[in-house]
Nucleic acid binder design. Structure first.
Length: 370
DNA sequence: GCGACAG
DNA sequence: ATCTTGTCGC
């Protein structure tokens, strides 16, 4: 049976807004004030499952497909497990008919369950519902990505400084850290900010999870003069080395009209080309998807490589050239610093005797020489 | 057992 | 991303 869902105000608004993107210089307020407040996946799932009557069930992957992204199935499961949903979460089961342990009692009260080999299933004659949404939200997110891609500029960027960006999270506590250094990795300054991340992690949509925290922090760092026009932003994730050539480094770069590139620890798409060239201290291979050169696999010594790709106002070669002087460890120094620092600050906040540091939004500005 | 998808 | 002490190796 197919259930047709009537989109709520948020979904309709996301649909409308995704149709025409504003000009480049209005992107930041558009994202901050219009788009980001609509990114509430728990509400999307809640709307869908609110259509399930007693005894009707759907699968996690089916909900993800209805929302427009099969890969979001795990995120649906995480939302259900975390208690973020208000609707009848016990009516969400696995695609093979198995019932999650935590739902057995509640669902068992609604319909017949079979026990086989230690786990419970719905009976074989019961079919899963299929929920249809007129404007799947993940489809709109892809539309926005595509529109932002059109604003992506590839040129020979000449950065004078570097800014590593990373987020450390545990439970509901998230801290972003921007670490700015010279091209050689010296004179590091940190800017940290605490905030919430309403969207769960879904592969391919990292910007929509981390952007709402990164962009405000970046705005502050610019106003303080820490980050300037000639600063290359180094994101923890991909640039064009992405299924739709639209990774977080591309979207952040276009949003703030700055130079960006991405450094990812795992390969999301593409293949590492066989022949590896040696430079002083680095071993570099091409990463290609078909004929397209999308990035470099870079490793120091014999460790596993990380994957560099360009974002906005940057070429792959110039990104590499800009990062090599500070690239002595597995990742460039500003990226490493941002990672360490965001972790330290996140722990300091969670360990602080409740009160002082806990009040969001928290802003720490610390200058350190390392 | 397969497949494995940034953080 | 997070869970995590000491330990092996360059």
């Amino acid at each position: 049976m197919v259930i047709e869902v009537e989109p709520d105000g948020d979904m309709e608004r996301l649909d409308t807004l995704s149709r025409d993107l504003p000009a480049r210089d209005s992107l930041q307020p558009y994202l901050r004030d219009e788009i980001f407040p609509l990114l509430d996946m728990a509400r999307w799932v809640d709307l869908l499952i609110s259509y399930l009557d007693t005894g009707h069930v759907v699968s996690f992957s089916s909900i993800a497909r209805s929302l427009g992204e099969p890969r979001a199935a795990r995120a649906v499961g995480e939302l259900a497990a975390s208690g973020a949903l208000r609707g009848p979460t016990h009516r969400i089961i696995y695609a093979d008919g198995r019932v999650p342990d935590r739902s057995v009692i509640e669902l068992g009260a609604e319909l017949e369950l079979d026990e086989r080999g230690g786990s419970y299933h719905i009976s074989d004659d019961l079919t899963l519902e299929d929920i249809k949404v007129a404007s799947p939200p993940f489809e709109q997110l892809r539309n926005i990505q595509a529109s932002m891609d059109h604003l992506l500029v590839e040129e020979q960027g000449r950065p004078a400084s570097l800014c590593g960006i990373d987020i450390s999270s545990k439970d509901d506590l998230n801290v972003v850290c921007l670490s700015v250094s010279g091209l050689d990795g010296d004179d590091i300054e940190h800017h940290c900010k605490q905030g919430s991340l309403p969207m769960p992690y879904v592969s391919g949509y990292l910007f929509y999870r981390e952007g709402p925290l990164i962009l405000p922090a970046l705005d502050e760092a610019v106003k303080e003069g820490m980050v300037k026009e000639d600063t290359l932003l180094v994101l923890d994730g991909n640039g064009i080395l992405h299924p739709r050539r639209s990774g977080i480094a591309c979207q952040v770069g276009v949003a703030v009209d700055m130079m960006t590139c991405g450094v990812a620890k795992r390969l999301q798409v593409g293949k590492v080309e066989g022949n590896e060239r040696e430079t002083a201290g680095h071993r570099i291979s091409d990463v290609r998807d078909g004929d397209d050169l999308l990035g470099f696999a870079v490793r120091t010594s014999r460790s596993k490589p990380v994957y560099l790709s360009r974002g906005n106002r940057m070429t792959l070669d110039h990104a590499l050239e800009s990062l090599l002087p500070s690239w002595h460890h597995k990742v460039p120094l500003p990226t490493r610093s941002a990672h360490e620092r965001s972790n330290e600050v996140r722990r300091a906040i969670s360990e602080s005797p409740s009160g002082d540091l806990q009040v969001p939004p928290l802003v720490l500005h610390v200058a350190v020489n390392r």
